[in-house]
Design a protein around this nucleic acid. Structure first.
Length: 813
RNA sequence: GCGCGGGUGGCGGAACUGGUAUACGCGCUAGCUUGAGGAGCUAGUUCCGAGAGGAUUGCGAGUUCGAAUCUCGCCCCGCGCACCA
């Protein structure tokens, strides 16, 4: 590609200019007209590829556009700098995580700047620096004081490769989110955040997030997994105790023909104490428990069970039903006990068939009466209640209410709500994270570190190699301490926090990055938050975005902030694909921005990235497409260069009005495209059309206005060349300080319009008419059109369909 | 299995509340220009057809004067959840 314009010099020049003039440093004291534009801060890995760039470029367009619209824009950036990759590199190459992280930050910062994306670097934060994690620890202590951070022994996800536990959200298809290793279960004592206490609000408040993508809200809703149902108490035969099970289908209670317990159910040992085949049952229970979670969760896994030898009583009809123990009941959900209704639940149906358990139909198909003998699968649809005493004949949906009330009155059941969400496991047996600020004292128990002693510094000299216990254990100086309460000898917690804790509040720190006596200044935070526009990848739909919402609500409840949702508007961009796969080093399909910027300049890379397709969708990277973007910018460059140089060569004055109209149409289109949903690809194509039209009009000085508009409209997308051209056109920099162009609605209207004419629904002709033509004139105009004549001559017109300014359809008999 | 997206030329993709399907860009073809061009300019480019014309938005039906868009049934691709009682 020929170098048409000196992009390298221009880009360096303007990047320096923006920096020197501090054009992106926001004064937080001035919050009128504030616009907080935030892109998810990155983990500092080795180097960015063009796929990463999409996020930053999109955000930069928004920031620059809002600036031209007169907003006081805040665009901070920082580093989510704790985490496993740095630690793994340390183990492998013996480089301290601090060193590699610092180096990576340097590289990435250089890359971000080379894209021309503008951040207020005066607010840069790095989550692995003590002045940041001090406040992560402080927030932990706030939760600890409130009882929202607690330690418990539980079956937890264990990644044998990372040698640490993981939160449920970090297990994808039974594998570790980071290293893809199969996760196993371990019974360990760990730290949790009580996110379940916020389950209801986390679901309910999704309604407040009007501008979030529906998809993300649905994902969060499903993850939290709220369902309404009834807890029913089934008396155990031969005992004065009962077993409680949860159901969402109380309408099927009369069809419960057996009950099933999870193998892990705590009552199991008690129940089978005196049963003859006790040993056999214990063997079964052990076998189920030893199966990995992934294996048990697989769809095609065979349902297996064993009769416990005991019976329970169905409290609505006093029927004695057998109690089973099976592999398909989860201990973690509900009560770990389910009433089995084989006629109306597919899982129970399969199980009942296998073990020849009775099947009682209690909801009948209104079309074909059901017969338990010949059913091939459970009937799960709605229908009419049968075999259900006083509820017979009712519609099953209606009966749910009645049965619930009946059970509550009798004291045999109670309506309740269940969630799938579990508490957030936040402790990690790794080095490169914020130490959990807790001390173990033999006398006082678990004691939080005093605020004045924060931060609990991460020791520099620990042995990284993980053995399943935190590397911090290797630093005696770290472990040995005194109890803050009784001053006697005590030990520090050696686990560190999940890095998602670090990132669950960073958007607050950006407001007061230098505050040394508090995590943030409340007044400023209240003025600047929620974030007006948050931009990042969907992969955080339930991880970071859920955790941040949770922490925000906790801080709100503690009256530390006055808002309870952190992100007003969220945009999730799609991935960039190359050769059919997500860009990754291991696949060898990464496209480096550095090479491209050297060859074409940053503006070209930006333009192509934005033009590639709708930003919320995945897009395939094409090296050829980059050429096109570069060619367009060269074309714009030439357009400005020649403007005024060689005049009147090809003067077509008639078109000037048309150009003016096109210009106003383009301003409208580009403005709408940016405002109403990030349609940058179509915004750019509209500008391309305007450029094409400007070229075709010729080189009269009258095109100047159009040229100027092109440059202004392009500036959020390709800021360097826009600044340069703006200056070339005789204006003072910076273009960022210009007002976004306005359009005149009256100039957009066309004088003459082309009306497509259909005959019997088929396009036959097009006629050019005045836009304000009355219908009768339009009809006669159309009938005199040669092509229309050809199709209508000698035929009867039965009907005219006239859509004003759009189309005419003539129906023939 | 459930939920959410999506399926439009050789390719990336346009098409507002049903109203000219294929904007814009890539690629390709021809011409001009050039010492040469992976440069620029001009024209063309959904398919079939010389043309008139016909066909066409994953497939099949329906509603309508008119459907990429609405309704019903089906197929394929991507993502999320997944024995959640």
């Amino acid at each position: 590609m020929e170098k048409v314009y000196p992009f390298d010099k221009i880009e360096a020049k303007w990047q320096k200019y923006w920096r020197d003039k501090k054009l992106f440093e926001a004064n937080t004291a001035d919050y009128k007209n504030k616009f907080y534009c935030l892109m998810m801060f990155p983990y500092p890995s080795a180097a960015l590829h063009v796929g990463h760039g999409r996020n930053y470029i999109i955000g930069d367009v928004v920031a620059r556009y809002k600036k031209m619209k007169g907003f006081n824009v805040l665009t901070p950036m920082g580093w989510d700098a704790f985490g496993l990759p740095a630690e793994n590199a340390a183990i492998k190459d013996n480089i301290h995580p601090k060193t590699s992280t610092t180096n990576n930050i340097k590289t990435m910062k250089r890359q971000l700047n080379s894209w021309g994306v503008c951040y207020d670097w005066s607010r840069e934060i790095t989550s692995c620096f003590p002045d940041y994690y001090k406040w992560t620890q402080w927030i932990f202590l706030k939760l600890f004081e409130k009882g929202l951070a607690y330690k418990k022994k539980a079956y937890v996800n264990w990644c044998p490769s990372c040698n640490t536990v993981l939160a449920n959200e970090q297990v994808i298809d039974g594998r570790c989110e980071r290293c893809d290793t199969q996760v196993s279960q371990k019974d360990l004592e760990q730290w949790f955040f009580k996110i379940t206490e916020y389950a209801e609000r986390l679901i309910k408040d999704l309604d407040k997030l009007k501008h979030w993508p529906e998809r993300v809200k649905i994902m969060q809703t499903n993850w939290i997994g709220k369902s309404h149902g009834v807890n029913i108490h089934f008396p155990i035969e031969g005992s004065n105790r009962s077993l409680t099970c949860f159901t969402t289908r109380i309408d099927t209670i009369f069809g419960a023909t057996y009950m099933v317990l999870a193998a892990e159910h705590p009552e199991v040992p008690n129940l089978i104490k005196d049963v003859k085949n006790r040993d056999e049952i214990i063997k079964f229970v052990e076998a189920v428990r030893n199966e990995s979670k992934i294996k048990r969760a697989a769809v095609d896994v065979e349902k297996k069970g064993i009769f416990s030898g005991r019976y329970v009583i169905n409290p609505v009809n006093n029927k004695k039903i057998p109690l089973w123990i099976a592999n398909y009941v989860l201990m973690e959900y509900g009560t770990g006990a389910v009433m089995a209704v084989p006629a109306h639940d597919q899982r129970d149906f399969e199980f009942a068939k296998k073990y020849s358990l009775p099947i009682d139909v209690v909801i009948d198909d209104p079309k074909f009466p059901l017969d338990a003998e010949i059913m091939k699968s459970a009937y799960v649809k709605d229908g009419k209640m049968i075999n259900s005493d006083q509820f017979n004949g009712m519609n099953n949906r209606e009966a749910m209410q009645g049965i619930s009330e009946f059970m509550e009155k009798k004291g045999i059941g109670k309506r309740c709500v269940q969630f799938k969400l579990r508490d957030w496991l936040i402790s990690r047996q790794r080095y490169w994270g914020a130490p959990i600020p807790v001390i173990y004292c033999d006398k006082c128990g678990i004691v939080g570190v005093s605020e004045k002693d924060l931060p609990v510094l991460l020791p520099e000299n620990a042995k990284f190699k993980p053995h399943g216990e935190s590397p911090l254990k290797s630093s005696e100086k770290f472990v040995e301490t005194k109890c803050p309460k009784c001053k006697s000898k005590a030990r520090r917690e050696i686990d560190t926090m999940d890095t998602f804790v670090d990132s669950s509040w960073y958007f607050l720190r950006f407001i007061s990055p230098y505050a040394s006596d508090k995590p943030f200044n409340k007044r400023d935070v209240d003025n600047w938050l929620p974030v007006d526009q948050y931009i990042g990848g969907v992969e955080h739909a339930i991880l970071h975005l859920l955790y941040s919402r949770f922490i925000t609500k906790v801080l709100y409840d503690l009256k530390l902030i006055s808002f309870d949702e952190p992100f007003e508007d969220l945009f999730t961009q799609g991935m960039i694909i190359k050769d059919g796969a997500k860009m990754s080093k291991s696949k060898g399909n990464v496209v480096s921005p550095d090479d491209l910027i050297k060859r074409y300049g940053a503006d070209t890379v930006r333009l192509y990235t934005l033009f590639i397709g709708p930003p919320e969708r995945d897009a395939e990277w094409s090296d050829r497409g980059v050429d096109g973007a570069y060619r367009f910018l060269s074309r714009v460059w030439r357009l400005v260069e020649r403007a005024g140089k060689e005049r009147n060569k090809k003067k077509v004055p008639d078109n000037i009005l048309g150009l003016k109209r096109k210009m106003h149409q383009t301003i409208k289109k580009v403005t709408d495209d940016i405002e109403k949903g990030f349609h940058f690809n179509t915004a750019i194509s509209a500008i391309m059309e305007l450029v094409n039209e400007t070229y075709s009009v010729g080189n009269d000085e009258k095109i100047h206005e159009a040229v100027k508009t092109v440059v202004l409209l392009l500036s959020p997308f390709v800021p360097h060349i826009a600044e340069e051209l703006w200056e070339k056109l005789g204006n003072k920099p910076s273009i960022l300080k210009q007002n976004w162009p306005l359009y005149d609605e009256s100039l957009i209207e066309e004088e003459k319009i082309t009306i497509p004419v259909q005959v019997n629904g088929r396009l036959r002709s097009k006629v050019l008419v005045r836009a304000d033509i009355v219908e009768d004139d339009l009809k006669s105009e159309i009938l005199s059109d040669e092509k229309v004549k050809k199709w209508t001559e000698g035929k009867n017109i039965s009907k005219w369909i006239v859509v004003p300014k759009k189309l005419v359809n003539i129906l023939l008999r």
